[in-house]
Amino acid sequence: MTIRIGLPRGLLYYQYGSIWEKFLQELGAEVVVTGDTSKATLNCGSGLDEVCLPAKVYFGHINDLYKQVDYLFTPRVISVAAGQYTCPKIIGMPDMLRSNIDNLPPLIDVNLNLRQNSRSLYQAIITVGHMLGKNAISSLYAWYHAWQYRRMDQAIRYSKPNGQRIGLIGHPYIIYDRQISMNIIDKLNHFGIDVITPEMISNRQAAIAAKTLGKKIFWSNGDHMAGAALALIQSEQPVDGLIFITSFTCGPDALIGELVSQRAQALNIPCMLLTVDEHTAEAGFVTRLEAFTDMLIRRKQS
């Protein structure tokens, strides 16, 4: 009988999910991924107190999942780059799950810490393989295979030469979760606006732009987001506006958002801060988007 492993669609799934899924399949497991976030997910997610919305969503997905699987794949991703961390809530997530859900199936919560060196990745791969009864060589081989499925950098598309372009800055797990972000990309596209997200900016470009900061940001997502935002506003063809989308009580974003808006202000580029939480009403959200885009259009005409 194959082992069923649950993979919640939340937090870092939006960055590494496809690799994880492929990796677990290569190791011979049946992978169960939860569906898109729904209102019900959000309701379950309120089991965690005071955390940010994406963390609640993650908790909600676990709630959907844990009764149907033998293992839950919830790696403790401490750091994905030298000298950087992910975020305290991501680091503490496996423990928050264990403390708040009874009768949880075993968690695959290997530590992944690339802060000091990259050995930890291989140790983690081998440990996961061991738990599923594979030896080191075949685990590493499975990872090598899965790695081919990582998302490539997307090239920026300019559909209309004179159209409005907006940089939409936020965590992938906010922007690409349609429930959390209220489908913001489609809404903006509907207004006839091109949207550029941090994922469309290459790591190299973002890193170069981030060098203008006085101190390197020690949250990897925050670093990339800030770098991408700076790359977009400092380029020769700067975007017409920036929207910084964040969730209420996201710690790093409180500071990164301020940083980005300081820089945008200095370059005279409009920047709007959108904060979402589980109470966000769609009408208010749309009104703000409309007001912002109208302002950008008038600005360009004048």
């Binding site: 809530k89 680091i91 503490g92 423990d95 928050m96 403390s99």
Partner: peptide, 9 residues
């Protein structure tokens, strides 16, 4: 952030 993790545990 750190204390919110602690609070939930």
């Amino acid at each position: 952030m750190p204390e919110i993790v602690a609070k939930n545990i």
